[in-house]
Amino acid sequence: MHTVWKGSISFGLVNIPVKLHTATENKDIKLRQLHKECHTPINYQKVCPGCEKEVKDEHIVKAFEYTKGKFVVLDEDDLEKLKKENEDKAVEIIDFVKLEEIDPIYFERSYFLAPDTGGGKAYSLLMKALVESGKIGVAKIMIRSKEQLAVVRVYKETLLMETIHFPDEVRNVQDVPNVPSNPSVNKKELDTALMLVEQLTTTFEPEKYHDDYRTALMELIEEKKAGKETVTSIGKQPAASNVTDLMAALQASLDKTKKKTPAPRKRQSKAKKNA
Rank of each mutant, 00 (worst) to 15 (best):
E229Q: 10
K256V: 07
K98N: 08
E87Q: 09
S233F: 06
D88K: 03
V243T: 12
V18E: 08
M161F: 03
T117G: 04
L200H: 15
D88R: 09
N274P: 06
L254S: 14
I234A: 14
K27N: 12
D78I: 00
L20V: 01
Y155G: 09
A239N: 05
S233T: 12
K273Y: 14
E92W: 06
A271W: 14
K225R: 13
D116S: 07
E101Y: 09
P167K: 07
L160V: 02
G134C: 05
E101W: 02
F71P: 01
A216L: 02
R109T: 11
Y123D: 05
M161Q: 01
V131A: 08
M218P: 11
V154A: 14
D78G: 09
Q237V: 10
L130R: 05
K128N: 11
T163H: 02
Y106T: 01
P206D: 14
R144W: 07
E222T: 09
K62M: 00
A240I: 05
G227M: 14
A150C: 11
A248S: 15
R171S: 06
H35V: 08
G119C: 01
T202G: 08
N182D: 11
V151L: 03
S124T: 08
D103H: 06
T158M: 12
T215Q: 12
E205H: 11
V197G: 03
I29Q: 05
H210K: 15
E52M: 05
R153A: 13
V170Q: 09
A249H: 07
E229R: 13
A193C: 02
L13G: 03
F112E: 03
D116W: 07
I9W: 02
K272L: 11
K68E: 09
V173N: 10
E58D: 14
S133Q: 10
L190H: 04
E157Q: 13
K53V: 00
K273A: 15
H21N: 04
D245Q: 08
S184I: 11
K53Q: 00
D168S: 12
S184H: 12
L217R: 02
A122T: 05
L31E: 13
A216M: 07
K236M: 13
S133W: 05
S241Q: 12
K53D: 00
W5P: 02
V72A: 09
L159H: 01
P167W: 03
V152S: 02
C51E: 00
L160G: 01
Q268F: 14
D103Q: 00
V61H: 04
R109C: 00
L217W: 04
E132Y: 08
L79D: 05
E222G: 14
K156F: 04
G227L: 10
D175E: 11
E100I: 09
V231Y: 07
N43Y: 08
T203F: 15
S133D: 05
V18T: 09
A248H: 07
S110E: 06
S269Y: 12
N15E: 11
Q174F: 14
A114T: 12
T232G: 06
V179Q: 06
E189K: 14
P262S: 01
K228T: 04
K36A: 13
E147H: 10
K135W: 08
K270N: 08
K228N: 15
L130I: 10
F112L: 03
D245V: 04
L113I: 08
E100T: 11
I93V: 08
K121I: 03
Y123R: 00
